[in-house]
Computed example of a mutant assay.
Amino acid sequence: LHTVQPAACETVPVYKENQREYTLIKTRCFGTLLQMEVGALLVGRIKNYQQEGYVKKGHEKGKFEYGGSTIILLVEPDKVKIASEFFENTENGYETFIKMGECIGKI
């Protein structure tokens, strides 16, 4: 598995080669979201607990076994206005660390 640092993404197809798991989350406000966990250096496996059914905000969805990784969230077009800091950070080659409950955009 490769690191998910921005520099690695320039030379290796990290998001294509590293282990991935994804979940489709159907919401009232945002439409259908796709949440994808990507294994990174020292992450041996991704374990999602629930395969189908209702989810509750804050409920543990799964875990990365040994190490850290990254999560990708795909949103339907025109459903959310993502905060500009994320685009600015990406353009400047910076990662954006997000904690649960932090605002990443608005309806």
Results as ranks from 00 to 15, higher is better:
residue 95 E to L: 07
residue 86 F to E: 00
residue 94 Y to W: 07
residue 83 A to S: 05
residue 22 Y to C: 02
residue 22 Y to L: 05
residue 30 F to A: 10
residue 28 R to V: 03
residue 23 T to V: 13
residue 15 Y to S: 09
residue 70 T to W: 10
residue 57 K to F: 00
residue 55 V to C: 07
residue 71 I to D: 00
residue 31 G to W: 11
residue 7 A to H: 15
residue 90 T to S: 07
residue 69 S to R: 11
residue 51 Q to T: 08
residue 4 V to D: 11
residue 34 L to E: 12
residue 93 G to D: 00
residue 43 V to N: 14
residue 46 I to V: 07
residue 62 G to T: 01
residue 64 F to S: 03
residue 84 S to I: 06
residue 74 L to G: 03
residue 40 A to P: 13
residue 40 A to Q: 14
residue 40 A to H: 14
residue 12 V to P: 06
residue 88 E to R: 11
residue 61 K to T: 00
residue 48 N to I: 07
residue 100 M to W: 02
residue 45 R to Q: 12
residue 72 I to R: 14
residue 69 S to T: 12
residue 43 V to R: 15
residue 2 H to F: 15
residue 37 E to W: 14
residue 72 I to C: 13
residue 16 K to R: 13
residue 28 R to A: 06
residue 19 Q to W: 12
residue 67 G to Q: 05
residue 20 R to D: 00
residue 40 A to E: 11
residue 96 T to V: 04
residue 19 Q to G: 11
residue 16 K to W: 05
residue 34 L to D: 06
residue 78 D to R: 15
residue 19 Q to K: 15
residue 13 P to D: 09
residue 67 G to T: 03
residue 55 V to Y: 09
residue 10 E to Y: 14
residue 52 E to T: 07
residue 69 S to V: 10
residue 77 P to A: 04
residue 98 I to M: 03
residue 51 Q to H: 13
residue 32 T to F: 08
residue 106 K to R: 09
residue 74 L to N: 02
residue 107 I to P: 10
residue 5 Q to C: 13
residue 48 N to W: 11
residue 82 I to C: 00
residue 72 I to K: 10
residue 71 I to S: 07
residue 85 E to N: 08
residue 53 G to E: 00
residue 95 E to D: 02
residue 49 Y to Q: 01
residue 22 Y to S: 06
residue 54 Y to T: 04
residue 39 G to H: 12
residue 60 E to T: 06
residue 19 Q to S: 07
residue 4 V to C: 15
residue 34 L to P: 07
residue 98 I to E: 03
residue 100 M to H: 08
residue 10 E to M: 13
residue 74 L to D: 00
residue 92 N to Q: 06
residue 31 G to C: 10
residue 62 G to M: 02
residue 102 E to S: 05
residue 103 C to S: 06
residue 14 V to N: 09
residue 38 V to R: 15
residue 47 K to M: 09
residue 29 C to A: 09
residue 43 V to Q: 14
residue 86 F to V: 01
residue 97 F to E: 04
residue 8 A to K: 15
residue 50 Q to T: 12
residue 15 Y to E: 10
residue 47 K to L: 08
residue 17 E to T: 10
residue 93 G to Q: 06
residue 48 N to H: 12
residue 27 T to L: 09
residue 107 I to C: 08
residue 83 A to T: 03
residue 75 V to E: 01
residue 69 S to C: 07
residue 79 K to G: 00
residue 80 V to F: 09
residue 100 M to N: 05
residue 51 Q to M: 07
